[in-house]
Every structure is written in C-alpha cells, then in structure tokens.
Design a protein around this nucleic acid. Structure first.
Lengths: 337, 337
DNA sequence: CAAGCTTGCGCAATCGATGTAGCATGATTG
DNA sequence: CAATCATGCTACATCGATTGCGCAAGCTTG
C-alpha cells in the first residue's frame, strides 16, 4: 500500500525502446513496421530491437501510426441484425476475408434503424475507415453521400443503392424458382391450385419488391391471378407476421411464401397456435436458409443466398473499383426439401 | 477530365474551420468537443463554429483525438461465432449498451480458434481499447495476461478465467434441470429409465465440465449409473457430433442431452438419416435456445441463457470493478416444450 | 484612477509513429 | 591520396486534436 495505484502504467513507446536499445526512435519504428530493409538498418540492430520489443511486450499505438499514415486499413461494415444465419455468415466471412487482406474489420449492427445506420456510418468515418460496406441498409444512398463527403468509399451489399456499387442476390430469380416449387408441391401434395400467400418484408425495399415480382410471375406462368390481399408485406419482425396473419380477411391459403427466416418464426408460431398442421396441411417455402427451419414439417424449400459468392464480388469491387451502376446480381441456391 | 482525380481530398481539419471562422484551432476544438463552456468561449463564437463545421461536413479525426486523450472509450469484445442465437444476442446487446454509454464497441469473431483469439486481442490492444470482454474464449487467462501487460482490463463472459472477473451462466443448475426434465419425459413418454446420452462440447472447457456434473448428478438422484461411454464430448461442430454418433459402440439411447445448438444440428441431421423418428422415438433437450429448434419433434426442452442478465453483470463490472474471483453465476431459463 | 477581477480567446507543447533529408564512417576507385 | 560511393544510422518536421498557461480588454471596487 505504499503509493496508492501510482501506476497509470504509461505504455511503452518506440522512444522507450530506443533508449533501451541505445538507438533512435526512427530505427525502432522502421524495424517494427517492416520498412527497415529499405532504410538500411543492419540485421544486427534489427534483431536487437525486435528482441527488446518482445521483452517489453510492446504494441504499437495504432492511433499515432494511423494519424501519420495515408490509409487506415480499417474497413467498416454495417449490418442490420445478427439474429439469422444470413447476416451471421456475412459478418463472419467478411471479417475473415478482411483479415486475410491485412485489413482491420469493424462491424456495427444497426438494428434495421435508419438513424442508427447513419450514426454508425458517421462514427466509422471518424475512425477514418478506408471503405464502408453497407449491408441491408434502409437508405444506402444517404450513407454513401455522407461517406463521399469525407472521401470514404462505400459498397452496398444485399440492398442496392444508386450512389455506390451494389452487390445483391438475384432476388427475382430466387423468388421465381421458389414460388414455382411451392406451387408445384401444393398441386402435387394437396391438389391445391390457388395462389400462395406472400408474407413478410417491406413493400418499399428493393428486395421484397423483386421477390414479389418473381412471386407474381410464377403465378402468371400458370395463369393464377394474384389479388392484392395475397401480398402481406408487413415488415420482417416475427410479431408483425403474426399480427398480419391474425388480421387476414380470408381463408388461409394452403401454400405460403415466407420472405425471411425471422418472419418465418412468427408464421410458424402463429400456425402452431391457430392452425394445427394436422387439421390444416400446408406447404411453404422461405427466402433465406436456416438449418433447423429446414426440418420443419410443411417447409418444402429454402432459398439460400450465396454469401461466399456475394463477398467475392464485394472484395473484387474493393480491389478494382468499378463505380456505381446496375447492381451486380448473384444467383441464389434453392434448397428443396 | 481536366485533372485526373487530383483530389486526394484532404479532410477538413479544425485548422481549416478556424481559418474559415477567423478564430483559433483551440477554440474550434473546444467548441466541437463540448468543453467550450469551461474554456469560456462565447455563445456567439460557438454558434458560428458549429454552423461552419456543419456546412463543411466536418468529422473529427478520432485517431488524432485519441492520441492526445487519456482514455479511448473503445470497448472490445471477442466472440467465438455468429452462427447461433446466443452469441448473436450477446453481440447485438453488447453493442447497443456500449453505445448507450457513449462507448465505441468493436466486436471480433474468432472462430473458436485460440490463435485468432490472441491475435485479435493483440490487435484490439493496439487500438488502445479501454476494456476487453472475452466471450467464450478458449484461453481467457492468456488473453488477460496479454492485456494486463498493456494496462487493458479484461472481463470474461460465458467461460471463466482466473485472472479477470468472470460472468457466466449457471451451467451446473441449468444442466441439472434439463437432465431431470429429459429423464422425466423419457420415463413418462417412453417408459425408458436408462441413462441419457450427453453429446457435444469439449470435456476440457469449464462449461461442458459443469454441465456434465449436472448431468451426472441428475442421474445419481435417480440412482441411474452413467458410464463413460454415455458422455460424448466430441467438440461443438455439427460434423463432429455426426461422426461421434456414427462411431457409437452401443445401442442409441432413447434420451439425449445436446450441449449446444450447433451440435444439435449435427445430431438432428444424423438422426434423420439413420434413425427415422418413426422407428426410433427419442426425447432430447438442448443447452441453448433456438426458435426453430424449439419446434423439432422429440425436442422437449431448451435451456436459454439469460443474455440480458449476463450483460447487466458485465456492465456493472465495467462501471464498478470488483476484480477477479469466483465467477458470477447467472441462472439459465429452462424452456420446456 | 490604480489595483484586481472577469470574460474571451490564442499560443504552443504534447500525444506516438513515420519518413525525408542529411550526417558520419569506412570502402573503393583512379 | 583525393574523390566517390555505399552503408548505417539520427534529427526533425509532421499528422490533427487537446489543453495548460497566459494575455488583453472591459468591468468593479475603493
């Protein structure tokens, strides 16, 4: 109890190491950041500095380093949620790949909240990120504008924008395939030829729009008219789906197209409480994949978005910028069950 | 095409703003970081600076700011995976709460890889984080040591360590409750009184150890002996569970205790391919919760870890440090089905 | 009206790492 | 042996924001 915690423990700096090694801070810096060969530092001095740095448990002050350097090598990503396999996989793979490229990934989860998205983007910009990947952003163009003003590139993932290159799934084709499959199975298994019910998503968001087009076109191919009441774009949240189903003003169709796994949670919950499958056999498919949802009775197909391929494109864009334009479409994988 | 991208677009600094406002950089800095009242800057000047900053879309250079300041207000977290609801919820809630406290959360996913855990910790330390929360870390003490050397506090979450305060679920009680429940149901539904099969996890990790103790004690209460072969601590990954089940050298028990949702994926996959439930009725429970797994036939209980409560404790510890000691146990919630 | 406050603000050092420019020293060449 | 060159290293300005210190002008007070 001599001095009461008089150790604010100033971290070792290159100056400390320089003193210990009897050399200059420049030499230490050069050795530690790898530029020492170009700077004609002898192997001997390099070794000594390295050894001392390790002994002292030295760790660069990135803040100081970045302040001086041109690029930060920090790459930011905003992501709506972590409550499903799709975004989870995006986050994991994004991190792994960024790291492989020597970049430092910083991912922020914005809860599908437009204000939070902007706030998070602003914060990341303050950290001088080199590039921001906006995943599933509500208003990607707003984010791009904000970043552009600070000279930060953006890439849109999952939902397209007009001010930055966008990489998204081919939602139309995915929905077309899934809808065809559900219609087939409804007819084959249940002898039902009526239109399916589309549940979940926001009618204003690009992906839901594309999926609804695919959904409608698959019906049109078969000459099945789809009236408005069959489209329940009630939002993504599980509770919203439950409420929408409860408020349904017609007999529940035998086939359903569920627009996301989180929506599926609500749908399944509602069905279990209101339409025991024994009494009301159903066939449904879901846009997005989940390993347990795959096993649900009645689930006959899940569209898995190709995360690896999507991120391939993101990192291609990162390395050789092509600029904004038509979204790059990545095919989905239909997993029939 | 006049000059080919001759705009490295140097970001606006406080000096630029000072020039525009006809004042000094100190004044600008004080106004923008809120310390201007203490520094007796007039309201009038403050307003002018604010206006100009907004017009210019100014954004502080956090690197420069942090370099000068004492604390960084960055709080780091490492997390093993994003492929399940538990860690997803931890990440989401951690971010939200950190943000509410004015901290900047940086989460890194370490893929259950001990080397990556250390590497990530080292990197976060370089960013001068104020505190690191190691979630489910393989070797939390190693991380704590590394951080301590740099004067960075650590808090262990989900898996305990001896060198930092640890906040974990009460795995023993959770496992005891779940095992009792499965045993009851096996007897009631199937008339089976044999021991359950424990599948998944690493025997060396604290949580699996505690759960196995709970598992054994619940059997002991009923006088059911559990031999070694009933404990399959084969790792967490789904494939490992499948292989372990395939290699099982005895008839498959009627009841199972599955140690995580990711393990459950493997178990269910294997069962579906090898023991159609119709021919081999089972009762199983799982430590960890998943909304779709809840609906699986045969699944009769899931233990949900209380993420909100766990994070309450983490942030309590953050605000009023108590130091290392016995892990703080947070009760789990058994969701019977 | 001099001494002492208060108000409002600017100067300059500082944080730690980086990289350019330059200075010794020894080796090589004509 | 002088001129040239390569080698190995150091000094110092710099990045942008923060902050202790101090200065000037206006206001009180006796």
């Amino acid at each position: 109890m001599a001095a009461k915690d008089t150790t604010p423990a100033r971290r070792t700096t290159i100056y400390d190491l320089a003193a210990l090694a009897g050399t200059s801070a420049s030499a230490v810096s050069a050795v530690l950041n790898g530029s020492w060969k170009k700077r004609r530092i002898s192997q001997k001095l390099a070794d000594r500095i390295m050894r001392i740095a390790e002994e002292q448990g030295y760790s660069v002050n990135i803040q100081a380093s970045l302040l001086r350097r041109e690029r930060s090598n920090i790459i930011g990503m905003i992501v709506p949620k972590y409550d499903n396999r799709y975004f989870g996989a995006i986050a994991e793979q994004f991190e792994a790949r960024a790291r492989r490229l020597g970049l430092f990934p910083v991912i922020t989860c914005t809860q599908r909240d437009p204000d939070l998205e902007l706030e998070a983007a602003r914060e990341l910009v303050a950290y001088r990120i080199d590039c921001l990947v906006s995943t599933g952003a509500t208003d990607p163009d707003h984010i791009s504008a904000l970043c552009a003003a600070a000279g930060v590139r953006t890439i849109n993932l999952d939902l397209p924008g007009s001010k930055a290159p966008s990489i998204i799934s081919d939602n139309y084709s995915g929905a077309l395939d899934l809808t065809r499959h559900i219609l087939d199975r409804c007819e084959k298994d249940l002898g039902d030829k009526r239109p399916l019910l589309f549940v979940g998503g926001r009618a204003t968001d690009h992906n839901t729009g594309a999926r609804i087009r695919g959904f409608r076109d698959a019906h049109a191919e078969r000459g099945i008219p789809v009236s408005e009441e069959f489209i329940l774009a009630c939002g993504y949240a599980a509770e919203k789906a439950e409420r929408a189903l409860a408020a349904l003003d017609m007999p529940l169709p035998r086939g359903m197209f569920v627009n996301s796994t989180i929506t599926l949670e609500g749908v399944v919950r509602w069905l279990n409480q209101n339409r025991p499958p024994s009494k009301h056999p159903l066939r449904y498919g879901c846009f997005d994949w989940d390993p347990f949802a795959v096993l649900l009775p009645g689930n006959i197909g899940m569209v898995q978005q190709d995360v690896t391929h999507l991120l391939d494109k993101v990192f291609e864009e990162l390395e050789t910028p092509s600029g904004a334009g038509e979204p790059i479409l990545v095919p989905c994988i239909l997993r029939t069950l």
